[in-house]
Computed example of a mutant assay.
Amino acid sequence: MATINPYLNFLGNTEEAFNFYKSVFGGEFVVFQRFKDSPHGDNMSAEDKEKIMHVALPIGNGNVLMGTDALDSMGQKLNIGDNFSISISADSEAEADQLFAALSPGAHVVMPLEKTFWGAYFGMLTDKFGIQWMVNFDYDQK
């Protein structure tokens, strides 16, 4: 069965925000990636390279708070109030396909489901009600 978790977007202060959340909730980051660690990191400004591509902080039993920095250089615009998505972690590629297809009628597909460099099957869309969704299946699930 798929799980859902909040995915937060920030205007360059993701690291500060997540260090604050870590102080509130405790625990350790299970993922902390900067844009410089991505395949396109060499093509970015020195400032953008140091920003956060993905961070994940487990909270409680089975919940994960995740986030990223929105980059103007990548054409990403952010409005406070719509700076989050609901991330669905599917149990299989087939489940990811089914969920993505079910959410797609009338949606704006931001990124179709595809295999990614970080070892996942991933896609993003904004549904017909304006809710932003991320659908993900990690290939290294146990």
Rank of each mutant, 00 (worst) to 15 (best):
F10I: 06
A94L: 08
V109S: 00
I4L: 15
Y121E: 03
D127T: 09
F25D: 08
T126S: 10
E16N: 06
G12I: 01
L71Y: 07
D97V: 06
I4T: 15
Y7V: 07
F84L: 05
F84G: 01
Y21Q: 02
S73D: 02
N63D: 09
D69R: 04
V55C: 12
Y139N: 01
P58Y: 10
L8C: 13
R34S: 11
T116K: 13
L8W: 05
G27V: 02
I131C: 14
N13E: 08
F32Y: 11
Y21G: 02
G130H: 00
F32L: 07
M53C: 12
D42A: 14
N83R: 05
L125K: 12
E16T: 13
K22W: 00
M44R: 09
T126H: 05
G123F: 09
I131L: 15
S23M: 03
N61R: 14
K22M: 01
D91W: 04
N61L: 13
Q33V: 03
L125G: 10
S92F: 08
S104E: 07
G123V: 08
Q132G: 10
L103Y: 01
A70G: 10
K142Y: 03
K51L: 15
K49C: 06
G75A: 04
F117C: 05
A101N: 07
I4P: 05
N61M: 12
Y21P: 03
W133T: 14
A90L: 05
D138I: 05
V135T: 03
D140C: 01
K115Q: 07
F10T: 11
Y139K: 06
D82N: 14
T3P: 12
L78K: 06
D48Y: 08
T126A: 07
Y21N: 02
L57V: 01
Q132C: 11
E95W: 00
F84V: 09
F129L: 02
H108Q: 14
E16A: 13
